[in-house]
């Protein structure tokens, strides 16, 4: 063992490695079960399990917000949508029919895989610690400008709003802490208009679904 200060971190990284392999195996195993299991409903349950393992991997990558979204939207909502679809579509216990269009599906999957591999290979995995732009760091960690004379967001009293200095330090040392809060800040400070348009998009989804449902041609009894 090396220095006592480092050994603690070393242990943590080993646990994190083990957890990564565990959750990766669960995610892939769940995905394999989804396509091999006969019962459509069981396949939906396995899909939810696979989503959950993926969320755990996001947490391991310190992408807390993405992890929470994965649980809220995929495990919570998309799985429910699929379960509803299974309930509505006929012949649940009979299982799914032998899949048609396998070649097309395999081609699409292979293309997707190639695109992901290409992106992974070509991305410059720069540490956030190497980002030197003050504005970018402030946006990412939600730290506000301390110099009121140059800040466009300085408050009316001329005072400064100080956030935890540790946050900046961590951002510089390579760890982005509190990604959720940073996204919240960006949502209000930089991306207010897209945020409002998102509301419109959600409203459109609701009204569009309603229009399909109330369509006399698709309505049964």
């Amino acid at each position: 063992m090396g220095e006592p200060a480092l050994s603690g971190l070393y242990e943590v990284s080993r646990v994190v490695d083990a957890a990564f392999w565990l959750f990766a195996a669960l995610a892939i195993g769940g995905a394999v079960m989804v396509v091999t299991v006969k019962d459509v409903f069981k396949a939906a349950v396995f899909l939810a399990g696979s989503f959950l393992a993926l969320a755990a991997i996001y947490f391991l990558l310190q992408a807390e917000f993405i992890g929470v979204v994965q649980i809220l939207v995929y495990v919570g909502a998309v799985s429910i949508l699929i379960a509803f679809a299974v309930m509505i579509i006929a012949d649940v216990p009979g299982g799914s029919r032998p899949a048609r269009g396998r070649i097309a599906a395999a081609t699409a999957a292979a293309l997707m895989m190639a695109a992901l591999a290409f992106t992974t290979y070509n991305t410059n995995w720069t540490d956030i610690g190497q980002i030197t732009d003050e504005d970018a760091i402030a946006g990412l960690v939600g730290v506000y400008y301390e110099d009121t004379s140059t800040s466009p967001y300085a408050d009316a009293q001329g005072g400064t709003i100080r956030a935890a200095d540790e946050t900046t330090k961590d951002a510089r040392s390579g760890a982005l802490i509190d990604s959720t809060g940073a996204i919240g800040t960006l949502l209000i400070r930089e991306f207010v208009l897209p945020f409002e348009i998102l509301g419109l998009l959600l409203a459109a989804a609701l009204i569009g679904g309603l229009a399909l449902m109330l369509n006399p041609r698709t309505e049964d009894k």
């Binding site: 917000f65 929470v68 939600g142 506000y144 967001y153 408050d155 709003i161 956030a163 509190d178 959720t180 809060g181 996204i183 919240g184 800040t185 949502l187 209000i188 400070r189």
Partner: peptide, 14 residues
Amino acid sequence: YPWAVRYGLLSKQF
């Protein structure tokens, strides 16, 4: 959810 996490600071600033 992310808005609620930072609401304290955001309301002070904006």
